[in-house]
Simulated assay, not measured.
Amino acid sequence: MQLAPEEYNYNKESEEITLNEERSWLIPFIDGLYIEKGIGATAFAKEWNKISKTAEDKRWTSKQV
C-alpha cells in the first residue's frame, strides 16, 4: 500500500515525506496537462499511459489521478 503520491517517498520510521527523484517528473507533467491544457482525469490517465506506468508497473486510471 502506498501512503504518499508516487512523486514522494514516505518513511514510516521518521514519518517524513521526501521527493522521489525517479518519479518527480510527474509534478510538472501534471501542471502542464491540467493548467495549460485543462484536461480532466480520464484524459490525464490516457496521456500518462502513453509514456509511463505506475510505480507498481500498472496502467494509470482516472481514480489514481
Rank of each mutant, 00 (worst) to 15 (best):
W48I: 04
P28R: 11
I27P: 09
N49S: 04
E13S: 08
Q2L: 10
S24Q: 06
P28K: 10
Y8N: 03
A55K: 14
F44A: 02
E47G: 06
N49T: 08
S52K: 13
A45Q: 05
W48V: 04
A43V: 03
N9T: 08
Y8F: 15
T42S: 07
T18K: 13
D31I: 15
S14L: 08
K53H: 03
I39K: 09
E56V: 01
K50A: 11
K50G: 03
K58P: 01
E36M: 11
P28G: 05
E15G: 04
K53I: 04
S52P: 01
A43L: 09
E15W: 00
I51A: 04
G38Q: 07
S62K: 11
A55G: 12
I39P: 07
L33Y: 14
F29K: 15
N9E: 12
E6S: 10
K58E: 11
T54V: 02
G40I: 00
W60I: 10
Q2W: 06
T61H: 09
N11C: 10
S62N: 09
K63C: 07
T42P: 06
E47L: 03
E7H: 15
E13A: 13
E21M: 08
T18F: 02
L3N: 06
I30Q: 03
E15D: 13
Y8P: 00
K12Q: 04
S62H: 11
T42D: 05
E13T: 13
E22R: 11
P28W: 01
W48S: 01
A4V: 12
Y8S: 05
W60V: 11
P5F: 10
S62D: 14
I27A: 12
S24N: 07
Y34F: 08
M1T: 07
S52N: 06
Q64P: 02
G38K: 06
S24C: 09
N11R: 08
N11W: 06
A55I: 11
W25I: 03
N11M: 03
D31Q: 15
I51D: 03
I30M: 14
I39L: 10
L19T: 14
R59H: 05
N49F: 04
T18H: 04
G32K: 13
W48L: 09
F44L: 14
L33K: 13
Y8C: 09
K46H: 13
W60Y: 10
I17K: 04
I27V: 15
S52F: 00
T42Y: 05
Y34M: 07
E6Y: 15
W60P: 12
K46R: 09
L3I: 04
P5A: 01
D31S: 12
Q64C: 02
N49Y: 10
E21W: 08
E22M: 03
W25S: 06
R23A: 11
E22C: 00
K50V: 05
G38S: 06
D57G: 05
T18M: 03
T54R: 02
G40M: 06
A4H: 07
T61W: 10
E7P: 07
K58T: 04
E13C: 01
E6H: 15
I39M: 09
K12D: 02
F44D: 00
A55V: 09
I30L: 15
E47R: 05
D57P: 01
E21A: 14
V65C: 15
A41Q: 06
N49A: 06
K46L: 05
K50L: 11
M1W: 12
E13R: 13
P28E: 05
